[in-house]
Write a protein that binds this DNA or RNA. Structure first.
Lengths: 129, 129
DNA sequence: GTTATAATGATAATAGTTATCAATAAGAAT
DNA sequence: ATTCTTATTGATAACTATTATCATTATAAC
């Protein structure tokens, strides 16, 4: 269900999020969008990011380095590297098992599961040795 | 290692956090602390909460309902109930297995793991039926 | 092409947190 | 116990991130 009008600004913002592979912040997005359409307003970026979140097309990631956005809505975790700052995607084939196990143990219903690891990414770990 | 001076304000704030069982926000804390010492300033609460975080005596929890603090620093997850808003503690005896498995699969080093579930808590689930 | 109104860009307003600074008080030295 | 040093405090200003306002523009239905 696509609510609202399909403006060229909204299209552009979604395009840019999909191109950005490294979990951009709002200002990353704004910067990138400005390069293509210099007349776009900051508020428009905020508004459309919120719409895309509501529509379930993107996800919010909260890290130590601030709020970031992810266009990959498949279930996965993140690792924030304390050396280089990058946010790695971590896929776990036992993702569903974790929530199901907790649902049973605690008699709760789980709709969403957010996992953020902090540590050292594979690349930085290699250089350390 | 206890750096800095042990002021009565700092002692009071830590006491209040430990008494508050339900993951208080900063304003919850400020409100509660004011009842005991009405002369305390808001900045002092912010400052001391940050110090306690640095010292590893409390943890920050980021939820949809804002930033909350937890005096239980043992490894555990949280569930935010979308009905009543409460933050449940979820303990998992396989906590360490999750991080170890991911460390091996991705060749990374994990120092910290934050898990937030969203769903319906046990109490709200009972009422729903 | 008209028309209704959702969305935009610019900017003001708000919320949450940190920085500033003179006054105070903790804790060491005497 | 008194003095001294300086970290901490309370009050408030400043700052940052985000949302609200509003006249104007542009989408999409007619």
């Amino acid at each position: 269900m696509e609510l609202g009008r399909n403006t060229k600004q909204k299209q552009l913002i979604l395009e840019v999020i999909k191109k950005e592979k490294n979990h951009p912040t709002i200002s990353d997005l704004y910067e990138e969008v400005l390069k293509i359409d210099p007349s776009i307003g900051q508020a428009t970026v905020y508004r459309n990011v919120n719409k895309l979140l509501d529509e379930g097309k993107i996800k919010r990631i909260i890290t130590d380095s601030g709020i970031r956005y992810d266009c990959d809505c498949n279930n996965h975790y993140h690792l924030e590297c304390s050396k280089c700052g990058r946010i790695m995607d971590i896929y776990d084939d036992k993702y569903m098992k974790l929530t199901r196990r907790m649902e049973e143990e605690y008699s709760v219903k789980i709709d969403d599961c957010t996992v953020l690891f902090k540590g050292i990414c594979d690349k930085c770990l290699k250089y350390e040795k």
